[in-house]
Design a binder for these strands. Structure first.
Length: 430
RNA sequence: GGAGACGUGGCCGAGUGGUCGAAGGCGCUCCCCUGCUAAGGGAGUAGGCGGGAAACUGUCUCGAGGGUUCGAAUCCCUUCGUCUCCGCCA
């Protein structure tokens, strides 16, 4: 959602920013609609003011028992009623037209987002660890002997269909350990507030964070109208929906471990093997609510929080800035963290850390009262994975695999496995 | 799931069709007075949208959305939420 006044003040800058996303100039259409709207509002309000004035006189006439005056005024007002209603209707329609138009326009990319068409134009900004040399051909996660017994796609398909998985034994345990490890890290070392949220939400919340109106087919809806969250970004960010909070209360930093649900419509045929892309998966999600002047620094901070998970797990990764062509609609800037997967011999996305600026806050009407006084302002919102649990599991086992089919687990996880350190080629946690 | 009650400004709380954006209290801000770890007096204290250089001004908002009416916080409908009792249940 964009600020009409910003567009009014500098339409050229707005169009220029849109063009970076490959969108044609819209400001002249927007401003024309805005002008009609404001004219309609003025007319409707002037008419209403007139009526309100008469109504007071009618009230006074009634109080003075002046029936003649009362009746004549009353009739006069009644005549104009229809006309007033039409003016109101027009003003309202134009106002909602404008709002719909603005709602459908994606966020403007930050100035330092690189130009580009697609993911090939993303720019690497950070790299950690060395791509390991294996003395054997490393396997994909689902082929590793240690993992195979605990990762059952056939049974999951029987239960639910494709793109589901049944984890058991050592793999299930490892999955749980990873989630616990991530939460503890973010809570104890990064100072985030641990949160458990609903995973079913009302429709308005999906508008607040931008999944709706455009991307409804990516998510699931229940028969009574709830939506299953595709990410805890939805619940965590909407905590401040409709609120005006004191600046002293900022920043708010949340972390939650939830199930996430995605229809994966449009990704048919992509990543169909293994548990890289599922309809249901677990993610540890971070969300920050900040004052505008702190959101860039918060973006850096949050990125480091996500990177720290992989560094503690001693897994190589690189961080890229998404280019204009790859940037999500609601975001000003996004860092993707891509983890090294030896089985695929490539880096794959494992986390996405984004700053939305005031884009979501406008939709949610989430504001703060500046400490130095003055009018409430929209907050800035940020969200990031910290991390996707299933994908992290893939990274851990692919990077830890041994020639004999066993998997060595990173030291950071040992406490979460009660001192166990590896999964044998037979699938036993020892 | 059944029955009922309720939803007012930062908080508490009046207000059941007419000058109510809304008494009163608390809190907070500023000013005055006061010389003792306090009290008293005065003023101010929501937001959205529109007009205006500004002062200021119009309009809308009493959970939300509709409706009745010349006029609604007050009446009607829908919806969301809270509470109580019953039922059910992890």
């Amino acid at each position: 959602m964009h600020d009409i006044r910003t567009i009014r003040d500098n339409p050229a800058a707005f169009d220029a920013a849109l063009s970076r996303r490959g969108i044609d100039a819209m400001s002249s259409d927007i401003l024309a609609l805005d002008e009609q709207r404001r004219l309609a509002i003025s007319l409707a309000e002037a008419a209403q003011a007139h009526i309100n004035g008469l109504s007071k006189k009618i009230g006074a006439a009634k109080a003075n028992s002046d029936n003649e005056l009362f009746e004549s005024l009353r009739n006069g007002v009644a005549k104009r009623k229809k006309e007033i209603a039409e003016q109101h209707q027009l003003a309202k329609q134009l106002d909602s037209d404008l709002s719909d138009l603005l709602m459908g326009i994606p966020n403007l990319p930050a100035d330092d987002v690189p130009e580009g068409e697609d993911e090939d134009d993303n720019v690497e900004i950070h790299r950690y660890g060395n791509v390991p040399n294996f003395s054997f051909d490393p396997l994909e996660h689902y082929d590793i002997p240690a993992i195979r017994p605990g990762m059952d796609f056939e049974t999951a398909a029987k239960l639910s269909g494709s793109r589901f998985v049944l984890l058991s034994g050592a793999v299930a345990r490892l999955h749980r350990a990873l989630a616990q490890f991530m939460l503890d890290l973010h809570v104890e070392e990064h100072g985030l507030t641990e949160t458990i949220t609903p995973v079913l939400v009302r429709e308005e919340m999906m508008y607040g964070t931008g999944q709706l109106p455009k991307f409804g087919e990516d998510s699931y809806q229940t028969t009574n109208g709830w939506w299953l969250i595709p990410t805890a970004e939805v619940t965590l960010t909407n905590i401040v929906n409709g609120l005006t909070i004191e600046e002293s209360y900022l920043p708010r930093r949340y972390v939650a471990h939830t199930q996430c649900f995605r229809s994966e419509a449009g990704s048919a045929g992509r990543d169909t093997s293994g548990m890289l892309r599922q309809h249901q998966f677990e993610k540890v999600e971070m969300v920050s609510i900040t004052a505008p002047e702190h959101s860039d620094a918060e973006h850096q901070r949050m990125t480091k929080c996500a990177e720290a998970v992989l560094e503690k797990l001693e897994i190589p990764y690189r961080t890229v800035v998404l280019c204009t062509g790859d940037l999500g609609a609601g975001m000003r800037k996004t860092h993707d963290i891509e983890v090294w997967l030896p089985g695929q011999n490539t880096y794959r996305e494992i986390a996405s850390v984004s700053v939305a600026g005031d884009y979501q806050a406008r939709r949610m009407n989430a504001r703060y009262k500046p400490a130095e006084g003055g009018k409430p302002q929209f907050v800035h919102t940020l969200n990031g994975s910290g991390l996707a649990v299933g994908r992290t599991l893939i990274a851990v086992v692919e990077n830890g695999q041994q020639e004999d089919g066993s998997v060595d687990l990173p030291a950071a996880l040992h406490p979460y496995l009660r001192g166990k350190t590896r999964i044998t080629a037979e699938g036993a946690l020892v």
